[in-house]
Design a protein around this nucleic acid. Structure first.
Lengths: 170, 170
DNA sequence: AGGATCGTCTGTGTTGCACCAACTATTTAT
DNA sequence: ATAAATAGTTGGTGCAACACAGACGATCCT
């Protein structure tokens, strides 16, 4: 129960060691639990979790090219095509040629898309209640805000500026 | 662009509609980004993201049966077998027959397992920096705490008690 | 013109899973 | 004692999400 200690001798204070507080696995676990429920909830709407992710990203930063979408979604661009085909077939997104560069497709959420996304999110309330049941409303809002900010990182960059300060803490 | 406001209006009156603040898609998105990086970081250690998830769960509530593990992981129990085979082959977990019910396997983290988990978490620091770059240390700790609490729900139950209050809010 | 870039289409392969069936060891119920 | 239920294991099937590669048309930039 009162494991190790050692590890970071100096830096005195800091009663608990935050060294192992990595969110990765927890994120994975909760995302999975959420996705399992989301699948069945979303199925009647003809949507899948990854469609929701795409729509959410598009709502946050609409009007982007497909490769920009591929980059923020971190998916292969060839698979983005099929994803957008699905969404466009349902009239949830629109592909328009960019006037600046007519090779580009500017992808944007349609009104139907925004509406559908909102509906889906409402439908997911129950699923979220099950998965985040241990959290109160205020905490869920905090969580949402943190996730939203983390997800809305500047598309490409940062990386390489920091990440040295605590490199030796491990 | 400057929609700030809210943030921490300390929730008094709840002026904004929190109706669409569903974390599901964001959770999915961030988990994916994290997993992509985790895969390459973990590969040299012979581990995969899902192994980390299992180890994390076992550290939190060790000494549980395989089907209990399957239940909290929400995976099919047949697939748990292979997962545990991997971990046991590496001496990270131990399967012991339960004295109470000798059909059961009590699964527990070994010392090596705890050590390995900790190492892996340290190795993931860089990945987390990339994914959670927009969040400061205190925010990350808050996030971790929220995720941890959400992930550590009482194994089976809750569900059915609540989820009616805000059902009409949608 | 020539080369690079964006999107599209068509494959191929891998992987994580769910699901089914059958089998053993063990407990529990009759 | 016999039957039924349960925990774990093994093997197989199938699907969906991808990553990756090749080829193509359209378009931009020299």
């Amino acid at each position: 129960m009162f494991h190790s200690v050692g590890r970071l001798g100096h830096m005195s204070a800091l009663p608990l060691d935050p060294s192992e507080h990595r969110s990765g696995a927890l994120l994975d676990h909760l995302a999975r639990r959420m996705r399992l429920r989301a699948e069945s909830v979303l199925a009647p709407l003809g949507l899948r979790p990854r469609h929701l992710v795409a729509l959410t990203v598009l709502r946050a930063g609409g009007g982007i090219s497909q490769q920009a979408l591929a980059s923020t979604l971190e998916m292969d661009s060839t698979n983005i095509v099929g994803l957008l085909n699905d969404l466009e077939a349902k009239n949830l997104v629109e592909r328009r040629r960019s006037p600046q560069d007519r090779r580009r497709h500017v992808v944007e959420l349609t009104e139907d898309g925004a509406k559908s996304l909102k509906e889906a999110e409402c439908a997911l309330a129950g699923a979220e209640d099950e998965v985040l049941g241990a959290l109160g409303p205020a905490e869920r809002e905090t969580l949402y805000e943190l996730l939203r900010r983390a997800a809305t990182t500047t598309p490409v960059l940062c990386t390489e500026a920091i990440s040295e300060v605590d490199a030796d803490a491990c």
